[in-house]
Design a protein around this nucleic acid. Structure first.
Length: 595
RNA sequence: GGUCCGGUAGCUCAGUUGGAUAGAGCAGCAGCCUUCUAAGCUGCGGGUCAGGCGUUCGAGUCGCCUCCGGAUCACCA
């Protein structure tokens, strides 16, 4: 990469001029800011060198500039403003870059995967309620991060750990049984996850009524909760489940089956998928051997009441419970077990957990425990901790009915895409199937981009009364730019063949900006993956699309009479389309050929 | 109370390892379709980067303190 060459040339220059070897990071090369683009493509700050040069900033910069010009064939000229050295790269360099990559469909993507896999866990739903906007953020992040890692040549295993057991499922099961209506998805025409979710809500309603009654008869809230028959029945059901009671298992299997059918539909529409699905009903007993092992080695200890703990106070944390006094496991025990299971299944390079930031502490503890128990791979556990999706009135609460349902939201996005497309009237020749596909692409593009453009670790706001935009910094804007480019390219191909070898005197400022942005794409792919942040990619793509639209507006392409210029602009367009398509694919967003 | 995360334009958000004059989008106003897709482009207004102190040639970015918001600190998951 040219910026690397520049850095090493410059540090050589400093060594030659001032006879002092320097750390190249002192001269971090950066892209010249727009105000000074007339002077160069790259800039260096010479202030840190003044102690070495013992000259004025201008003089120091000029000396280095001359030295670079003399030793770096790609450098064309330089300019100095205060302590900034701006270097222009020869257009020949950019021309070569363009002709080499203009038709490279895999530009920015490392196609051959190598190394042990990265295991990415995401989604991880409970089977007692349908997916909502919070889950949507989780799923989109997990899928996109997986795509980004793949684009960087990693083997990726996407896993989902479904929480299919526990008291919450028993509540839905119990309410269903008590209602006596024998409803099924088939009999009601309802999506299975929705139906089960309704019964979960029904349980809560019945339970609250029971508590009310008990309190009306003079009990305190605590007493009422302790005396609740419904809760006792739910617990009994859980015990029966654990005892593998046949009827209970049958009901459980049936209702979970409904939920999975429902989830499958939602996952498919969201465009996410998994390489392996773990079920807690099969993993919840794991971890106990690890505990035994830790007890033996003395890293864990047992209290008088028989409960097992780890002391993490030297790590600045607390003591943490790992086994209850009755010998049963807690969440942490299971997670230790499933982490080990994954380590055994895949011998991964690293483990990524896409889990909300309310579990920051949990994962910090998890890492520490595994590390103390002699699992060196624990060092490569990354908790991709994302913020809440909040509504204007605050947090979403399932029980208060303030959740934004994933299916409803997708329906709404697609229907908005439909009405906007119809209003614009550009696809009248599409058949119904093509049109439906486009509505889905655009609607989902708007939704996905809206969520992914925000830095994962930040909380974000969703206002249901203001529908998600389709103009400005949005998915459809980027999709539109792609469709626009493709339209030009189609026309160019329909004309005569355009020469892909071209020589131009130089580039227009708008062309240079675009070329430079396109040149940066592979670095952005890397950076986004390292940061586990689709937002890095999203924001880059928006800037790129904006630059293309400015270029498109200010310069003609097909009507350009100078054939070389025309060819260069087509090359820029072609590569821009490739970058947008590849970048969007890393976000899990499709792009339409027309819209 | 301890720990962690956040606070940037009216609103939603960017801002690479500290670098030049802090940027977008939306909303508002004014323009641009006989020309490669107007889901677009151009222009205008809009800021005590929560506040203070410090480190530095240079701080939205790093450190300390204060204020505000959120999360977490369960024999819940």
């Amino acid at each position: 990469m040219i910026d690397k060459i520049l850095t090493s040339t410059a540090s050589e220059a400093v060594r030659f001029l001032f006879n002092v070897p320097i750390d190249p990071s002192l001269l971090a090369v950066q892209r010249t800011i727009p105000a000074f683009r007339n002077q160069g493509d790259f800039s260096m700050v010479v202030f840190p060198l003044l102690k070495i040069s013992r000259k004025s900033p201008e003089e120091t910069a000029t000396m280095i500039g001359n030295e670079i010009l003399a030793n770096m064939p790609e450098a064309e000229s330089f300019g100095v403003v205060k302590g900034y050295l701006n270097i222009r790269i020869k257009p020949e360099y950019w021309m070569q870059f363009l002709s080499e990559n203009q038709n490279k469909l895999s530009y920015g993507i490392t196609e051959t995967a190598s190394g042990n896999p990265v295991v990415v866990e995401y989604s991880s739903p409970n089977t007692n309620k349908p997916l909502h906007l919070g889950h949507v953020r989780n799923n989109l992040l997990g899928y996109s991060v997986s795509q980004l890692l793949k684009a960087n040549g990693k083997n990726v295993v996407k896993v989902n750990l479904v929480n299919d057991r526990g008291i919450h499922i028993c509540k839905s099961m119990l309410a269903w049984k008590l209602s006596g209506k024998d409803e099924t998805p088939l009999s009601t025409g309802k999506k299975g996850d929705k139906l089960v979710g309704d019964y979960y809500v029904l349980f809560d309603k019945l339970y609250k009524a029971e508590i009310q009654d008990l309190m009306a008869s003079g009990k305190t809230k605590d007493e009422a909760e302790a005396a609740s028959v419904l809760m006792a029945q739910a617990r009994e059901m859980l015990l029966k489940w654990e005892a593998r009671d046949e009827d209970t298992l049958k009901l459980w299997n049936m209702m979970n089956g409904w939920v999975y059918d429902g989830f499958d539909v939602t996952y498919k529409r969201l465009g996410v998928n998994f390489d392996k699905i773990y079920y807690e009903s099969q993993t919840y007993l794991l971890g106990k051997e690890i505990i035994e092992e830790g007890l033996k080695s003395g890293i864990l200890f047992r209290k008088e009441d028989n409960s097992v703990w780890i002391d993490l106070t030297t790590e600045g944390l607390d003591e943490k419970l790992l086994l209850r006094s009755d010998g049963t496991s807690v969440y942490m025990t299971q997670d230790l077990g499933t982490a080990q299971l994954r380590a055994n299944d895949f011998t991964p390079d690293s483990l990524v957990y896409v889990v909300g930031n309310e579990q920051n502490y949990h994962f910090e503890v998890l890492k520490h425990i595994l590390f103390k128990l002699g699992r060196p791979w624990a060092e490569h556990i990354y908790h991709l901790s994302y913020g809440m999706v909040e509504l204007p009135e605050g947090k979403m609460k399932s029980r208060e009915g303030t959740v934004v349902d994933a299916d409803d939201l997708m329906d709404e996005m697609i229907s908005t895409a439909r009405s906007m497309t119809k209003e614009l009237g550009k696809i009248e020749d599409f058949d119904s199937e093509e049109a439906q596909k486009l509505y889905w692409i655009v609607g989902m593009g708007a939704l996905k981009y809206f969520i992914l453009k925000v830095d994962p670790k930040k909380n974000m706001l969703f206002n249901p009364s203001e529908s998600i935009d389709f103009n400005g910094n949005t998915g459809p804007f980027i999709q539109y730019t792609y469709a626009r480019i493709k339209s030009v390219l189609r026309k160019a191909e329909a004309e005569l063949k355009v020469d892909t070898d071209f020589v131009v005197d130089g580039f227009h400022a708008k062309e240079s900006d675009l070329i430079h942005s396109l040149y940066e794409f592979p670095a952005v792919v890397k950076q986004a993956a390292e940061a586990l942040s689709p937002a890095v990619m999203a924001n880059y793509l928006f800037e790129l699309a904006k630059e293309y639209n400015t270029f498109y507006h200010e310069l003609t392409i097909l009507k350009e009479e100078d054939e070389a210029k025309k060819a260069s602009r087509l090359a820029i367009s072609s590569l821009a389309a490739i970058v947008i398509k590849n970048g969007m694919q890393m976000l899990g967003i499709e792009v339409p050929e027309r819209m």
